[in-house]
Amino acid sequence: MAAVDPFDSALDLLRRLNPKHTSEHLNALITLAPELTEDLLSSVDQPLAVRRCRQSGRDYLLCDYNRDGDSYRSPWSNEFDPPLQDAPVSGGEEQSNAAGLPSEKVRRMEVKANEAFDVYRELYYEGGVSSVYFWNLDDGFAGVVLLKKVATPGTSSEGTWDSIHVFEAIDRARFTQYNLTSTVILSLATDNSSLGEMDLSGNMTRQIEIELPAESDEQQIANIGKLVEDMELKMRNLLQEVYFGKAKDVVGDLRSVGSLSESAREREAQRDLIGSMRR
């Protein structure tokens, strides 16, 4: 028997244990198998933390892609907080530098993309926080689009939505190839005396690869916008189906509200009726 890769086992475990506590399970796994730390942190999506930008006063989202050590880069100011020890110089026209800043060209696109997804966020989420981070690739660029919304506290049900869209935009001869991996982390809960505790939490991931023409930076951002918008629509429908359709159906499979013998009799009567009509 071939030895199983511990990394695969760690991912399998995270797919089984309560998704509401993925971050705790992740920390436990890192303590158990420290050698997996980097791989796990870069491939496991966790709920996004929010931080306020010191320069602009606007909120932004934290993830592994705008992190350098213990510092995070604000998409609004392009500054790290807390400031990096070796102050990064701007990445120049073509190359990103070692400190993780995108090149000037890619940063300009990042600024545009943040503005565009700000509009997207307002139209679809009517609140929440969005952040877009880009970085250079040898043959194109890559980025992550983050969206977070917390349902209004104080109501009887609580909820949090985190979207994480990681993409690569690779230059080809006549088009750009986009590889998009999207994860939505959705946590819902309600607690009242007649229902007791009800927690419906989880995450789902989808991938897509597509080739599209992109002749300008604006068109690149428009392409990414459309891809993310289509993906989120698809995933919202999927989440609706799994959370409120599938989960409810399984409960109905476990226990029947109505009497089983009665519904069996009704089915029998129906069969008889259909049988008699055929004769």
């Binding site: 797919r15 089984r16 998704p19 009800m198 927690d199 419906l200 789902m204 799994v242 989960a247």
Partner: peptide
């Protein structure tokens, strides 16, 4: 439910 994800209902 764990196809392409991990969704859990706990009551």
């Amino acid at each position: 439910y764990y196809e392409d994800g991990n969704v859990r209902l706990l009551t």
